[in-house]
Amino acid sequence: MSNIIKRYYIGQPNELQILNGISLTVHEGEFVAIVGASGSGKSTLMNMIGALDKPTEGSYLLNGVDVSKLSDKQLSEIRNKEIGFVFQTFNLISRTNALKNVEMPMLYAGVSRKERSKRAMELLEMVEMEDRYTHKPNELSGGQKQRVAIARAMANDPSIILADEPTGALDSKTGRMVMDIFHKLHKKEGKTVVLITHSPELASETERIITISDGSIISDTGYKGNAPAKEVSAE
């Protein structure tokens, strides 16, 4: 990801530049924390990494593919297969139960019914929510919801898990549990995890801390891993 600039209200008097030329490489299997004050542009950056949004300027390669040149349909496919989002407010579909929520990304990927529910159950087991699979989101606590959301993020076995303040709405105890799951995903499954957080303690658990202020990177503890087998995003 190089020299990313994001502007809003382009060409209007109230034009805003949120990201001022961010260059960043995240390697496969890395556990990265992005920290910074509220409004500093963390979420905007995450949307960019997650192919939810395209940069106004600059280029972004994901597994070697230039995301800024992709069509809307192709972006949807990337989000579906390569990215797993975990939101601060969980964003589960309230009408349907935990299992169906976990199945949803697979639904859009065209996975067969049988395979879908089998995989969803496995994922719920991984986050220790298998006995709650029939429960609807409003019958679950915040921590439980977030665990279901993490299971959902893992549905199509994505390259990157993007978590935007996943513990922001949780108390410290359940937040701890959620963090443990991320560690597990990172260590056991070898997932690349990008964690956005306010909390310096949580950030310190990760391999690399990137600090953002006013749309620019002000510090980066750097890549600590071995030589990258394959880059998830590259300059």
Partner: peptide, 16 residues
Amino acid sequence: TREIGVRKALGAKKRA
């Protein structure tokens, strides 16, 4: 709206 946003983030195409 939020549900639509979530579905899109999870990979739902416009057509879906």
